[in-house]
Design a protein around this nucleic acid. Structure first.
Ligand SMILES: [Mn+2]
Ligand SMILES: [Mn+2]
Ligand SMILES: [Zn+2]
Ligand SMILES: [Zn+2]
Lengths: 145, 145
DNA sequence: GTCTTAAATGCAAATAGTTTGCATTTGCAT
DNA sequence: ATGCAAATGCAAACTATTTGCATTTAAGAC
């Protein structure tokens, strides 16, 4: 291929071949702020590579997630969303109406984890925290009926 | 019907007709300790009422969840699971090896929620918190290799 | 009790996000 | 360049869940 993209070394270091589809998806993920569905990423990708296939997007994202390059999240019935694995520990605040996601940098759980370890004799190695609510716009829309 | 079940008043108070399917599912949910999939509940229900239909189970659980009688949870690809809505707000500590679940009564997030509401202008109505780790026994087993 | 009516159910079919089988192409090590 | 495993495109399958519709049923009025 003429230009395998900017992520060849990165991909090879993670034990993956550098393909134009993977490079493209990495570049899209790197630009994007909020987690996106596979289909949204596919629609973005198809602008640069009209032959890319939705199955490939799913397979690439699955592989990325397996390698901890991306993270996949899902809620009840909704589609899963994918984003680059966060460099720093963070949590999500999710609007239950429009599905907007705000990232929360501060984690309030360090002391709590320690106290749980003491009281339960577990070793706590991870946690999952998501807040659910309504964003300002959706609050207004809901108030109007 | 001869015997509408034990939950007639309870159901009527929640604005629902008392049907044998709903009574049966409530009695199953009340007995069961861990959250179950709709299909598991259906398989349990069919023992008492061989004519109950899986669609009905889904519809009943949807209605129960809408009334906050049950809670529905799901992880990634897995099927949703349903359980009676916990009487007290609580969280889970899950052993990643043996899948044991310890319920945590104390919630450390009240102040955090308020500060998030102030900084994001969301209204926060709910949260999901799970801790992951290893129980004492599994720690020992892992240490032994 | 009977009557009335909206809600609930059974059944079959549809939905939709995601996965998979398979033929073909591609990247990478030699 | 060559060979081969891995990745891709395409279409079809999968599967948890939902939905349309005809029929039954519960609750309330009489
Ligand atoms: Mn945290
Ligand atoms: Mn809490
Ligand atoms: Zn919103
Ligand atoms: Zn354990």
């Amino acid at each position: 291929m003429d230009d395998c993209g900017n992520y060849k070394n990165y991909l090879n270091e993670h034990g993956m071949k550098s393909t134009k589809q993977r490079n493209l998806l990495l570049s899209i993920l790197a630009k994007i702020q909020t987690p996106q569905t596979a289909e949204k990423l596919y629609l973005q990708a198809i602008k640069s590579d009209s032959s890319i296939n939705l199955s490939t997007v799913y397979r690439v994202l699955e592989k990325f997630t397996e390698k901890n390059i991306t993270i996949r999240t899902s809620f009840l019935d909704d589609k899963s969303v994918y984003s680059l694995y966060p460099k720093t520990h963070q949590h999500q605040l999710i609007c239950m109406r429009c599905k907007k996601i705000v990232l929360l940098e501060h984690c309030p759980l360090e002391d709590f984890e320690k106290s749980v370890e003491e009281s339960t004799h577990f070793s706590v190695v991870n946690h999952r925290l998501e807040l659910y609510g309504y964003c300002r716009q959706c609050q207004k829309i809901i108030a109007m009926g």
